[in-house]
Amino acid sequence: MTVDGHVNYYAVSLAIAVCSMLPFVLAFEGRKPQARELVVIAVMVAIIVVSRAAFFMLPHFKPAVAIVIIAGAALGAQSGFVCGALAAFVSNFLFGQGPWTPWQMLALGLIGCLSGLVFSGAARLRRPRPGLPGLPGLPGREEGAFASVRARKRAERLRTAALCAFGFLITFALYGLLLDTAAVAIFSSGIQGEALIATYAAGIPLNLVHAAGTAVFLAVFARPMIEKLERVRVKYGLYGGRAAGCRPYSGRGKPRPYGGR
């Protein structure tokens, strides 16, 4: 990556961005995912892109990161990564591809992956259960569906608050800083501390708006969206989700969500 003795930072950072996405891509492709999984991911990608396009008039106040976080939380880390990375790629078909595309893909992919690790990783390790996905230890439906409506609402609120805080932090810290660093690598002949600090400082207001937007959209969208995703997951037995006493929908005949054989 050196041309005539000095390091080309753009080349190095591009190589890093591409190489860090490769393991995810290879793992996903190597698993030979089922058609049903692919279609659900495609749905999420399309929804992210549509939602980014729908708020074109508000710069930086976009629901895209929020929905990537929801996708990661509901579908798991690997699908979250694929959703985020492909959503960045597809939406740039509308907004313009450029030298920034690989970094947007990496940033959104990592956000989806981290969200999956934080919000669905622990739950996946246990027996998949119906009801609410989310933070380990929160009550699901089987733990007192009627007795503790209040407790469930409180748990839901807690989960939404956790999602909002996570969204705010990760948008500001990961997406903002990663893309600001990429901007320095694109614009400058080297990575100087001074240039980095100036770029980060200039980026703070924009990143704050973006992060606040993510938190607001999570507060509004998270509950309904996760419920819908969970409903489909349970109804059709996607991603290991299944209703109590019900075998996963095999694709033959009508699904029998509640009650089994």
Partner: peptide
């Protein structure tokens, strides 16, 4: 407006996911 947008989105997600299952069954 934001709330209404969220509700439209949520209706659409339900529809899209049901639709997706049909698509994938057809692919299979």
């Amino acid at each position: 407006k934001l709330r209404a947008g969220g509700e439209i989105l949520s209706v659409m997600v339900t529809w899209a996911l049901e639709n997706a299952i049909e698509t994938s069954d057809s692919m299979r």
